[in-house]
Design a binder for these strands. Structure first.
Lengths: 216, 216
DNA sequence: CGATTACTTGAGGCCTGTCAATGATGGTGG
DNA sequence: CCACCATCATTGACAGGCCTCAAGTAATCG
């Protein structure tokens, strides 16, 4: 894969890595750090459509359809591996296994979106928050970032609210409800899940995202 | 592409083409007819995560990740082109342009999901319905199915409700509201949009999905 | 033409959004 | 080291959008 790598970059918290509607000439892989994917409405309302975790691919949509329909913003310091967009086609031509891997990543991403849509559309406030916490716990656990039952979660409640279609206030109250019920505690940028089963009962989470992802 | 085609099938209204959680050995392309993609919660709640229109690809997720996380159900009579799942890899190896096309389809599908998430998460009831009507009108228009300002829309209000995370009752009232305002009328399985701009003002819809899709 | 399914409409209550104020936390400069 | 400021988290009161329940109408099908 070295042939396709053109360098590395660092993004600071709050930095926009790719802007909405932009025609990006680059593709990235997140090496470390976390961020969000989001779309903005003319009204200013923001929908968080996903969270970028280490190992995630960024900008495939732009590379293949000429334009990103959502932006990417860093939430922590991020190290990024940079690829050249024009070489994506070369990869499909010369390395079919890799191309297959890329498509698989896209398919997994689509699954996450489906699950999110399910949560936002069908669950109530408490359920939505439970789903997101559970989903984070599992993804981060699969990445080996769990330690003593805790995983890092360097987001703001506003990010959760924007991801779940809830108001900030209600998100906060739902979090408090889960905390008081002894299910999970999220504070100081870290999440600790006390009762995984109760959480999963509130909001089912598809298993086996822990299947090894193709690395690029 | 004939090499990969293994036959054709017909699905009747209400028939499940692929079941949730199933490990499908086939891939399909919808030749004609329409259907829905959906996920079901243990509680029985159903989230419609997408609508299958002519030209759409079905089952890529299953082929590439071993399992479908959402089911497919026909809403009209559908003619389907059947492919063999095992040959997908052959396609990546021998026909990189085609493989690229498949990945592009997946990327476009992801865009639709993002937009849906945005609508379900951020818009109010009226806006959600306006978005879905507008989205249908544009997709069907791009497919050349518009005639005299009307497009076929053979779904039930319950499907809309399940797609938008609204109750059936509220979906109905929102539709009535749009109708009374003279924006769009959906009846008898056909949709007529009277005021596209007003509809778009309520719910922005990403342009240029009309870009030619790779056919399979 | 009867039965089933889908659509429509009204009433009442709960969940969730908005407004508002306070507390906690972290970074900055004197 | 402390005052100051900005950002984020927390909590309460109130209003409104949306859900549920329920009944009635229309359309579809055998």
């Amino acid at each position: 894969m070295k042939r396709f790598k053109t360098g590395e970059t660092t993004a600071l918290p709050g930095a926009e890595i790719i802007s909405e509607g932009q025609e990006s000439r680059h593709l990235y892989t997140a090496l470390s750090g976390m961020g969000i994917r989001f779309k903005t409405l003319p009204s200013g309302a923001r929908q968080v459509v996903g969270f970028v975790l280490p190992g995630d691919f960024i900008g495939l949509q732009a590379s293949i359809t000429d334009e990103m329909r959502h932006g990417i913003e860093a939430r922590t310091i991020m190290r990024l591996c940079v690829f050249d967009r024009d070489r994506l086609w070369d990869l499909f031509r010369d390395y079919p296994e890799r191309a297959y891997g890329v498509t698989r990543l896209a398919a997994v991403e689509e699954r996450l979106l489906c699950e999110a849509l399910m949560a936002v559309g069908q669950l109530d406030g408490k359920g939505k928050v439970a789903w997101l916490l559970n989903r984070f716990y599992r993804r981060l656990f699969a990445l080996g970032m769990e330690r003593d039952g805790r995983v890092p979660l360097p987001y703001r409640q506003q990010d959760f609210a924007d991801a779940l279609g809830l108001s900030l206030v209600h998100t906060n109250k739902s979090l408090a409800s889960l905390r008081d019920a002894g299910l999970a505690v999220w504070a100081q940028g870290a999440l600790k899940v006390h009762d995984p089963q109760a959480l999963a009962a509130l909001a089912p989470v598809d298993e086996e995202f822990e299947r090894p992802r193709p690395l690029m």
